[in-house]
Simulated scan of single mutants.
Amino acid sequence: MQKFIRTLGLAMMAIAIAGCGLVYTPDVQQGNLLDKKDVDQLQPGMTKRQVLVLLGSPSVSTPFDQNRWDYVSTFSRRGGPLTRRTLTLTFNNDTLVRTEGDFFAGDATQQLKDAKKFNANYPVDETQGDKSKTKDDDKDSGGFGQGKSSDDSSNK
């Protein structure tokens, strides 16, 4: 009976913790990840093949309308509201005629804050890098690719 009460207590505590939001919820990014510089290179008159090479395959390409490609991306930050971004390309006879959508719309200050959050400011001393010699390198003069092996001398 004591094991049952202990198990029931642990189960209720786990449910309470999950209900309080203490359980980690990851950010979820789905759909196409487009780069602004690639989208800026789109020009009317480009062929479907050129657009495919530049942006990749669209996330939505309907069989009923071959002249419309939709690039869709959704992002949810730790269980928060879902952000949906779309870019619609319209073709006429396999050439691009129109682009529309809000794929890169957003609050610029918020985007800067998000970018700075992931910016790692590591001190780098390029003079030291991998090419510098340490005390151990001076002691050990034999390494890979140095000196001749017995196979090299026998081939002469």
Rank of each mutant, 00 (worst) to 15 (best):
R6P: 01
W69H: 01
D94Y: 05
G101Y: 04
G80Q: 10
L42Y: 01
F64D: 11
F91M: 05
N32W: 01
F64S: 11
Q2G: 13
R77V: 04
G143E: 08
W69V: 00
G143Y: 07
V97S: 09
L54S: 02
G45Y: 09
E100D: 11
K36R: 15
T95L: 02
T62C: 12
K131I: 07
S73C: 05
D94I: 08
L89R: 01
T99R: 12
Q66H: 07
T109F: 11
Q43C: 04
K48G: 00
T134G: 13
R49Y: 11
V97N: 00
V51W: 01
D151V: 11
D140A: 15
F104A: 02
K156R: 10
F75V: 09
L89V: 07
N67F: 06
M46E: 01
T99N: 05
D70G: 04
P58D: 06
K148P: 03
N119S: 12
D102L: 04
T7A: 15
T74S: 13
G31D: 02
R68G: 00
S73V: 03
L87Q: 03
T83K: 12
G9K: 06
W69F: 02
A16T: 06
L8H: 06
D65L: 04
T62Y: 12
F144P: 07
Y24K: 07
A105H: 04
V51T: 01
N92R: 13
Q111F: 05
K37C: 00
R68F: 00
G101E: 03
N67D: 15
L34N: 03
K131S: 14
L33P: 06
V72M: 06
L52H: 15
F75G: 02
D102S: 08
K139C: 04
F75H: 10
T74I: 08
D140F: 14
R77T: 03
F64T: 13
T109A: 13
T83A: 13
T83V: 12
Y122G: 09
D40Q: 13
I15P: 02
G79H: 08
I5M: 08
P44I: 11
V124P: 00
T7P: 02
V60E: 09
D40C: 06
A14W: 05
G142V: 15
P44V: 13
Q146I: 14
M1D: 10
K113Y: 12
F144C: 02
S59Q: 07
G21A: 09
K36M: 10
L42I: 03
K113D: 09
S141C: 07
K116R: 09
D114T: 09
T62V: 14
Q110I: 11
V51R: 00
L112T: 10
M1C: 10
D70A: 09
N121Q: 11
Q43I: 05
T134M: 05
K135N: 10
I5P: 02
G129I: 04
E126H: 13
K113A: 11
A115H: 11
Q2E: 14
